[in-house]
Each structure stands twice: as C-alpha cells, then as structure tokens.
Design a protein around this nucleic acid. Structure first.
Lengths: 208, 208
DNA sequence: TCCGTCAACCTATCATTGATAGCCTATCGA
DNA sequence: TCGATAGGCTATCAATGATAGGTTGACGGA
C-alpha cells in the first residue's frame, strides 16, 4: 500500500522535467475545484501528485503558499483573458463591454480559479513569499494590481484624462462585475433568474 | 492556571440567564473580527467565554454550526438595517437609494458580520442544522432569502409589475452593491480611491 | 574511476485542531 | 429527600500542517 506511493513517484514523477512545482499546483487547483478549498488537505494534494506529504515542503514553504501561488496564476489568467479581447480593435465603449463579458465568461468557466483569486479569505499566506529583502513585496497583490490595470486602462480610454474620475469609475465598474460573478459562483443555492438574461441586463447597466 | 477557567465559569457564566449560546456567538464573532475566521479555534472561543472547549459541543453540534448561526444573525441584522430605512416614506427611487446606502453603511460598519454572512466560503455547515425532519430546511439560506426579499420588494415598487424583470433588476442591483462592499472589506491592501467619493459614484450608477 | 555535493524524496514524529466518551455537580420538581 | 437533567470537566482520538533526519541518485571535477 505505502510502497505504491514510492513506485508511483518514480514512474510518474521523475519522467516530467523538474516541474514538480507546477504539477503540485495543478493537482491542488483540481482538488480545490472538486471539494472546495477548505476541504483539501496537504496529504490529498501529495497523493494526487504521487509524493509523500512532507515532500510538498521541498517545493512550497507552507500550504498557504500553494494557495498564494494559485492566486497569482489565476490573476494572470484572468488578465490574459481580458487582454486577448481588448486587443481586438473597436470603439472604447464596445471594448469595455467586450472586456466585461470576457471577465464574466472567464469567471464562470473557471469558477475555482476565480474563487482562488478573489475569494481567498486570507491571502496573507503570501506575506513571506517574496520577502527575502526587507520590503514585503507581495506577489499576490502585484498580480491583482496588474489585472486591475488592464481593466483601468480601458476605462481611461473610455472616459478621457480625468485621472481621479477614471480611477473611481474603474473601481466602481469592476466592483459591479465582480459582484455578480462572485455571487453566482459562491451562491449556487440561491434562486437565480435566468443566468444569461441576468448577465445581459447587468452588462446593459454597466453604461455610464 | 487551569482552575482559573472553572472559577471564571462559575463567576461569569452562571450569573447570566441560560444564554450561554448567545454568549458563545458573541465571543466567536468578536474573535472572527479580530483574527479572521480561519485563524479562530474552538479553544479560543471556549476560553473567551470561560468554559472548556468540549463544553461548546453542548450548545452547538460543530464549529461550523457556530459560523452558520452567526451567518443567520448577520443576515437578520442586515435585513433589519434595511427595513428601518425603508420604513421611512419617500418616492420609490429615493427609497431604493436610501436602502442601498443603508446596506453599504451596515456592511462597512460591521465588516465582520458582513463577511460572515456573505463571504463564508462554505456555509454547508448548516446542512444538518434544522433537518430533524426529512426536508433539509436550511436556515442560512432562508435568512439570506429573507434579506434579499427586503431588497426585492423595494425594486418591485420601483419598476412595477413585470415580475421577471423585477427579479433580474433586483439581483443585478444587489450584485452591484455587494460587489463594492465585499471588495472594500476583503481587499484592504488595494489602493482604493477616496472611499466616500467612490461610494457616491457607485450609488449614482445604481440608477436604471 | 571515484568521491563530494546537492536536490528530491522518504519515514517517523510533533503540536494543534475539531470532536467524542464518560464522569461530576448543582438545581429543581415530585 | 431524591431522581432527573442540564451544563460542565478531564482525558483522549483521529486528522492536519509542519519539522527532523536519513537515503538515494544524478552530476561534475580530481
């Protein structure tokens, strides 16, 4: 029984480059999606990868650090999804609307990723992540800011050069979209109206 | 050292009616607010109340049940805060705006309560709460629905009798407001614009 | 060819956590 | 006065995140 794990480690593990880290992250994300963040244990992750539970700590300093890394990845994926849509030329209003739609589609297609990025109760696990130097340079925050910057840029194009107004509008519109997807994701049991009609109305009300 | 706990239990505990349950909930909420939900242990709650950790289980079936109860309370408090404002006579548009403002004010004044109600990753702890009968009658969901009903009613007054449209608008506007407060609460570290101006703009954009 | 180094892994083990078992005690109605 | 009951306690469990210390195998210079 137990030796199976060691066997699997040699059969499975060594053959793929040195990307155990990525392998662990993939397994963790899959488990998070299946059972919900709080129900996943380090032993389950280790077993899914085919290594022993303490071996995780050769790649991550703590369980929270795994979550933090996933958080960074999720932000990056969302930013990329938006960037792809924004790259297509269009009027600033149309681009904004497309970006919002891409945001919603991404979140609903990858609810676990979105959950990890935005609904992590305590992303402080990353406090000590990149802080080899004195400055506590938080990679999760940075990834989030980069993601928001994508959103902000399109808003700036839309409303012109009033900086503070642009920032306020960016934050307000972002909250508008986040509110819907986070509730749709987190509250399955709620008696939602028809999802597509709800989204369309929500997007319609994005105008300003 | 240890006997102190027993002493305190007799000094503190017995004197207050039989409301140990409420006492536990208060202590738990306070701790949640101080240290963040995930960092609070049953032993800390017990110590704060002045009883031993196993004694909690005489009042609650599990730790999740404590959180679920707090969730119900928080929904009720929010609903009450809205009801108080809605009771004041005004035009339907003005009432809606006041209710939204009351919602935001409540959430920002009681961030821990709002967090417990809406940002509980896993309110399944209540699955077995009221289900003595076969029907799994979920009190948390019910409290949430009651709270939403408050919101919905004002929307109905505002938009008239198109039922589905009213429901969609109610859900969309609720998401609009929830998005802002949940982000403001959960993302302290984000470089927010001036809070009051942001809120005002967000409320302005509530119109439809 | 041999040996030191290093990364990745393992087993054994901790302290802490939520939860259960079983006993004690004070209060209260018959 | 006495049994029942509510509420509490200590002792203890299994599971969890984390650490300690040893083992293996690849790789590079003597």
């Amino acid at each position: 029984m137990i030796e199976t794990m060691a066997d699997q480690a040699e059969a499975d593990g060594r053959r793929r480059g040195g990307n155990r880290r990525a392998q662990i992250l993939d397994a963790a994300l899959k488990l998070f999606a299946q059972k919900g963040m709080a129900q996943v244990t380090t032993r389950q992750i280790a077993q899914a990868v085919g290594i022993s539970q303490p071996s995780l700590y050769a790649h991550f300093r703590s369980a929270d650090e795994i979550a933090a890394e996933l958080c960074v990845r999720a932000f990056a994926a969302l930013a990329e999804a938006m960037a792809r849509v924004v790259a297509v030329p269009a009027g600033s209003d149309e681009r904004l609307r497309r970006m919002a739609r891409a945001y919603i589609d991404f979140a609903l297609a990858q609810p676990d990723m979105y959950r990890v990025a935005f609904m992590l109760e305590d992303p402080q696990g990353c406090k000590s992540l990149g802080a080899a130097d004195g400055l506590s340079h938080d990679p999760v925050l940075e990834a989030g800011l980069l993601c928001f910057a994508q959103w902000h840029r399109v808003i700036v194009e839309h409303v012109g050069d009033d900086d503070e107004r642009a920032m306020i509008l960016a934050q307000s519109t972002w909250a508008h979209i986040h509110g819907l997807v986070s509730l749709l994701i987190a509250r399955h049991e709620f008696p939602w109206a028809d999802r597509e009609r709800l989204i369309e109305e929500h997007l319609r009300r994005l105008s300003f």
